[in-house]
Amino acid sequence: MSLDFPLDRAAHPLPGAERRAILADPGFGRWFTDHMAVAAWDTERGWHDGGIRPLAPFTLHPGAAVLHYGQEIFEGLKAYRHADGSLWLFRPRDNARRFAASARRLALPELPEDAFLRAAEELVRADADWVPEADADGPEGSGEQSLYLRPFLIATEPFLGVRPSAQALFRVLASPAGPYFPSGVTGVTLWVTETYARAAAGGTGAAKCGGNYAGSLAAQNEAREHGCEQVLYLDSAGHGTIEESGTMNLCLVTRDGELLTPALGTILEGVTRDTVLALAPELGLRPVERAIPLAELRSRVAEGTVTEVFAAGTAAVLTPVTGFKGEGYAVTVGDGTPGATTLALRRAVLDLQYGRTEDRHGWLHRVR
């Protein structure tokens, strides 16, 4: 049986003037739209009770498994308004597949890909007025308004035994997002932590689950204490290879035209990462996925054979990395400013997402 998402429209949506005031400066994750997508699952009925309902709090039994054992997953994707007013999602089936893979790893029920897609579509249609206009005429990075979607799945069975929950709730929230770099794209410096590790072989690093992010907060604090905006993790096996930058995948541009990125395994299979790897040949780059030792990164940045470094993720698209710090060293990438190749790749991704260039990969999914 397919899972549908009929609309139960909110009786008291936010007045238009208040919504427009929010959209003028939404920030990121501060405001939520009038509706949410919902569905429930249990071992007897499977998936059921799907719908688009008014945004509202919901109650959980204090013994719910998610509160005690962290059995939950989430996703992040965006809806974009094109110049003609149409609304589009970018690569939503890739998010749906990753959501299912994360569910398998956390022993949660797998939501069918079509149901994931319908939930996202119907929520965007219900809250279409919340999708901001995109202004492409401002400085680099300033015209990137979108509607961020946050699907999540939590274990809700009230039971204090350590086993997979027999009940779960699915929700999708929507939150208008302003430009990540409102004054133009700037670079960040990463702190190479030797105290914390993000993931280990056989762990949950390849799943998008909250525990991975909760465990990163102390490392982010360590980075800030050393004057850095984000953290760079090394592998937990002690090989000294780089993994991820906080919540983003890391990429290196070399002088001889390679686009290097750590291989998958213990890191998240980022949709933006995959997009950049696919677009790289169009900009004259050869994508290479392999283990990258920290020693190689430091030496090649110092000698100038790694000319640019950037991080890739849904929120900021591409974030230039202009320097690294670690215990006893500091390295500047290039001349310490965002690189031309990084900015060109960033523009190529955004032009696809906002419909300013032809979608030859079939990544755009029209909603309305």
Rank of each mutant, 00 (worst) to 15 (best):
A344S: 13
T43A: 10
A37V: 12
R163C: 07
L350P: 01
G284I: 14
E244Y: 01
G76S: 13
E327H: 10
P293R: 15
I292S: 01
R255M: 05
E194A: 09
P158F: 12
V306W: 05
A103P: 04
H239L: 14
E72C: 10
L190T: 07
P92C: 02
G210Q: 04
L117V: 15
H82N: 09
P57A: 12
R171H: 15
T247V: 14
T241H: 09
L264I: 06
F181E: 06
R20H: 14
R255F: 02
T307F: 04
R347W: 03
R356T: 05
V309F: 02
H361K: 08
L77Q: 00
A280L: 06
P62W: 07
V367M: 03
A37I: 06
W31I: 05
L173C: 08
P164E: 11
L364Y: 04
I242P: 03
A83F: 08
V271N: 00
T43D: 12
A199M: 10
E133R: 14
I52Q: 02
L268F: 01
T195S: 08
L364W: 01
D4G: 05
P6G: 14
F28E: 03
E282T: 15
A344F: 02
A136W: 09
R286M: 10
I154E: 03
L87Y: 05
A101L: 10
E44T: 13
I267M: 00
D129Q: 08
R93L: 08
G16N: 13
D129M: 03
L285R: 01
D135R: 12
Y196S: 04
R366H: 14
P262D: 09
F170V: 08
A10H: 10
R19Y: 03
L7H: 13
V271L: 01
F99V: 02
H68L: 05
A37R: 04
V231P: 02
S236K: 03
M248D: 00
S299V: 08
G323S: 09
L260M: 06
H239I: 02
P158D: 11
F90D: 00
A340F: 05
L60F: 10
Q230A: 13
L260Q: 04
E282S: 15
A166E: 15
V309L: 11
F310M: 06
R366M: 10
A316V: 06
G265F: 03
S245D: 11
R300L: 12
E296N: 10
G334E: 12
A24F: 08
